[in-house]
Amino acid sequence: MTISKNIYLELTEEFNVGRQRAIISGGQAVVLHRLALMSKDGDWILREDEECLRHILLVLSKRGAVYRFGAPLDIRWMAAGWSAHLEFNCDGMRIRTDFVTRPPRLSARRLAAIWREQENNALPYLGVADLIETKKTNREKDYVVIGELARLSVGVEEKMQYSRSARELMELAEHYPENVVEAIKQRPALAAVADGLDALETALDAERRYLIHANEARLLRYLKAAELWRKSWPGLAPVMRQKPLLEAHEDMVKRAEDLLPTVVPGGLA
């Protein structure tokens, strides 16, 4: 397939010259699943190796990108689950690029499988189930997207794991009762199927609130770990912005070595 020149696709092509380094996730993956246009930012999962991160920085430096507040695009912080955020202007548009190497809620094993699956894709982007996992955030709007993504699921097991529609889950349970028992082990909210539609709707609401709080707790660990870094940023950023990105990156790494921990207890849990 020839990839046309939307900026996010253009960037993905550049990121992946020579090897597969970047997989589209987030809102632009939602577009590629043909669901909705709802995000201005680009999100990628990157390979966690130094060549990859250097290449990404090189691509962005050619575009005049600058760092936003975040972690350096350096393996020490990426491996701890931090995220790196950069932006540049292109054709009058503000383009934001957000990166992780360890997306939340995807195990190391699953991540390795994703890289294998995407190896030869000219346009690599997260599949439905993986994208849903990354969208179990603390934002209500992400659960709306999960609801629609789940309708793209293939197979009864996947639909039972991810559907946000109590009606659809009740129908699935009626047609495939043998799958429900197994599905409950992965998704306890499904136990409410036995008690009817109202009970299942209540259980799904509670599940959503649980996921929201879980993600908030995870983010708070990082926000607290970044407090000294946050305080230093207003002094560091203006100096960095006067320099080409690769030099600014070196400055940022030196300061981060003192102020931003490379281990966040419970961060990757």
Binding site: S83, H85, D98, T137, N138, E216, L223, A226
Partner: peptide
């Protein structure tokens, strides 16, 4: 604002 990553605001 941040749409993803660990610097997203927490209420």
């Amino acid at each position: 604002a941040y749409s993803h990553g660990v610097f997203v605001a927490v209420e």
